[in-house]
Amino acid sequence: MADKKDDDYYYGIPDFMNRTSTARREIRPTPLAQARTHSSSGSRSRPHLDEMEEDFRRSRDHSVGGEAIRARRSTRKVSKSWIQKLKEKATSRVTIAVVSGALGIVIGASVMGIGQDYAINSQIDNLPIVQEMSQIVGENVHRTNNGEGYFYDNYEIAKEAREKIENGASPTVVLGSIAERMNEGYAQDDLDSVVNSIFDVRVGADEFVRQINPERYQDGIHGENFMNDYHDALKAMAHGEKVEANDQQMRNVYDTNHNQELDEMISEYDNVYTTSQEKGMGGK
């Protein structure tokens, strides 16, 4: 499944280690080049974390508690583009904070649109895996050294997600909860990096799920079908039922790739050891 194209991660590492994901893990700090930096250009700018926190705090202070406000209502005609820009500026900082988990807000089931039933949504929100995955992403958003922006620690997110899967967590739920927080509009490249690292592939998140189920996941990881399957998986867990979805296929890929890596390491060790033994016995 892995795409064997060149990878510029492999510098200064012995050849046999380059064939294993252990090497990639060792040299995989999140580069500053991938950091989200503040830009004044357009709606895709990445706000300074301090500004994000300040906006969040101010909005909260003006919204919660206190007295009711009696306002004078009116209507006004404004330019469509102007109001759209105002809306984008006002909402982008706080929604980026929510999506990235930078401010520790858990995306609950009611917002995921899983259902209108308060009871099931509450059960879903209380699932340990939901809270743990929210924490994994939220705690691995960091400010850049120069304080200009923020970035995901993809290595840590992938590492912790792998541990969840190794301990029996549903790959669908793990992937879905990461994808829900690493929105395609802001963090697709981070998501691709995380998925590649979890499953030891090089195809990115969308292509990975397509390969798992070509008929159903044509629209990729943020497509309706995968997200619905992820939400159904959460509902199943909340009801104490077994998660079906495409968990087994994903687990097969995970096991195959990670066992293959281990086999290669063992094989390389055997080659080196056997050669050494032969030389020791008088071989040329």
């Binding site: 406000i69 009696r70 306002a71 209507t75 330019s79």
Partner: peptide, 10 residues
């Protein structure tokens, strides 16, 4: 190119 929006003044 214009749209009517609700305004609350206080």
């Amino acid at each position: 190119d214009t749209i009517e929006v609700q305004v609350y003044s206080f």
